[in-house]
Every structure is written in C-alpha cells, then in structure tokens.
Amino acid sequence: MFSPDTRFLVVDDFATMRKIIKKVLAELGYTNVEEADDGQTALPKIKEAHKEGNPFGFVVSDWNMPGMTGIDLLRAVRADESLKATPFMLVTAESEQKNVVEAVQAGVNDYVVKPFNAATIKAKFEAIYNRLNKAA
C-alpha cells in the first residue's frame, strides 16, 4: 500500500468535497495532503513540487471543474515526461460507460464515482498500488 508519508494533492472546485476527501485520507492514515481548486491551479503546484524534489505521490481530482477539468489536468500530467508516472485518480458523479472509456484512454489509474466512502477509496488505492507494483 502507498506509504503513510505519500504527498497527496486533492483537486476540487467545491471546498466541501476537498474536505470530505481529506477526511477520508486522514481515516486511511494519510495526512500529507495539499489542495487546489481546479486544474489550472493544480498543474503549477504539481510541476513546482517535482522541481523542488518533493513531488506529489498521488493526485485525487474531481472531473467537472471550471478553468481546467480533471481529465485535462490528467492529460497534461501524462503529457509531461517528468510527471507522467504520478498515480492519478478521478472523482466524479459521472459513471456512464463513455466517461470511463475517456478516462482510461487518458491514462487514469482509477476512477471513483460519487457518492463514495472510505472503504471504497481504500480498495481503489490498494488496487492501484498492486497494479503499479506488478507492472514495475
């Protein structure tokens, strides 16, 4: 499983959802968590953190946001050679098949549909971790 020191970035335009995700992360033992309110503010943070040698070990992002959406943020991360290995999970109310396909094609590690609880998030993290380590 991801180390308790893993540095998380939570991206959502709703302060409430950021708070909920932070609460869930804390329940799972992750307290090294920063926030951004859309893709436009998240991307420079992700780049900066990498430059400083303290990169984010996981990005949890909402899909629907003004400015820059979650899937555009994901594409920008995957397009950047130095950032492209960052584990990335999308959180969204959309669960139709077309969205899943779009997210997978863009390189998402997993996808959580709102509403969710801590157990769902934990299972997703474990699945992502296992897939990444099997691939390595």
């Binding site: 409430t16 109310a93 139709e96 509403p115």
Partner: peptide, 17 residues
C-alpha cells in the same frame, strides 16, 4: 451552502446515471 450544492450535485448525478 457549498456542502448543500455538493450534496445536490451527487443526488442528481446518482439519479441521472
């Protein structure tokens, strides 16, 4: 207010799906 917006969003999203 923000939380009510988010709850409404989730309820509508669940029903819509």
């Amino acid at each position: 207010r923000d939380a009510v917006g988010e709850l409404t969003n989730m309820i509508y999203g669940t029903a819509k799906t």
